[in-house]
Simulated scan of single mutants.
Amino acid sequence: MSYSVSSALYRETAARLADAIDGGSYFSGSVRFDFDGMACCLLASVIVYRRREIFPEGEFEPIVDLVPVWWEFHTVGEAGEVINDFSFSELKAYI
């Protein structure tokens, strides 16, 4: 059995990863959450690239790219771990 990662799961994972990165330029750790009956866990070491944007309201440094050094994405259901089709390249589209 294989678990297909949906665009909604990519969005959720990207949002949680962005929160975990916060304002940093490097992230190494895990992001764990439940989604659609599955326990999901992204383990990753990621270099974060940003760009500076200046507006009258202030300066911002949004994430423009993530370069994974290493990553794993696990999905676990009631019967145990399930192989999935997660792609870090696909995740980057949601950051």
Score class of each variant (00 low, 15 high):
L9T: 00
D22F: 14
T75K: 00
G58A: 12
F35A: 14
V64M: 14
I21M: 03
G77F: 10
G58E: 05
C40W: 04
E81H: 15
F60V: 05
T13A: 07
A14S: 10
R32H: 08
D65G: 03
S89A: 13
D22H: 15
A20H: 00
A18Q: 04
H74S: 09
V46G: 04
A93Y: 02
S2N: 08
V69T: 06
F73V: 10
C40H: 00
L42D: 04
S28I: 02
F33E: 06
P56S: 01
Y94H: 11
V76Q: 11
Y49D: 15
L9P: 01
N84G: 12
E57L: 15
R11E: 13
D22T: 11
D19G: 12
E90Y: 01
T13E: 01
E72H: 11
S89V: 07
E90V: 00
L42N: 04
L91E: 03
F86S: 01
E72C: 10
N84V: 10
D22R: 15
E12W: 01
F88E: 04
S2E: 09
G77Y: 08
D34R: 11
A44E: 04
V64P: 09
I47H: 05
I63L: 09
S87I: 04
F60D: 04
S25C: 07
V64N: 13
N84D: 12
A15H: 02
R11A: 15
F55S: 13
G58Q: 08
I95H: 06
E12S: 07
E53M: 09
D65Y: 10
F35W: 15
Y49K: 15
T13C: 08
A44R: 01
N84A: 13
A79E: 10
G29Y: 07
A93V: 07
G23L: 12
I54F: 13
V48K: 06
R51E: 11
A39S: 14
L42G: 01
E59S: 12
V76A: 12
F86T: 02
L42C: 08
G80L: 04
F73T: 07
E72P: 05
V82M: 14
V69G: 03
E72S: 12
R16T: 06
L66Y: 04
E72W: 09
W70K: 14
V64R: 15
I83R: 13
S45G: 09
Y49T: 14
G24F: 04
P56E: 01
E90S: 09
Y94E: 01
A39L: 13
V31E: 05
I54V: 15
G58P: 06
A18G: 03
T75H: 00
E72Y: 09
S89T: 05
L42M: 09
L66W: 10
I47K: 10
S4V: 11
R11L: 15
V31A: 11
S87E: 00
I63V: 11
C40Q: 02
D34E: 13
S45I: 07
D19E: 14
G37K: 07
L66R: 06
I95E: 03
V46T: 03
L43W: 07
R52A: 08
P68V: 07
A14P: 04
E78Y: 06
I47C: 02
A93R: 10
S4E: 12
R50A: 01
E72M: 12
S6C: 06
F55Y: 13
V82F: 12
E59Y: 05
L66I: 02
G24Y: 02
F88Y: 11
L66E: 04
E78S: 09
Y49V: 10
I47L: 06
E59F: 05
S30I: 02
F55D: 09
A39K: 14
T13N: 06
Y49R: 15
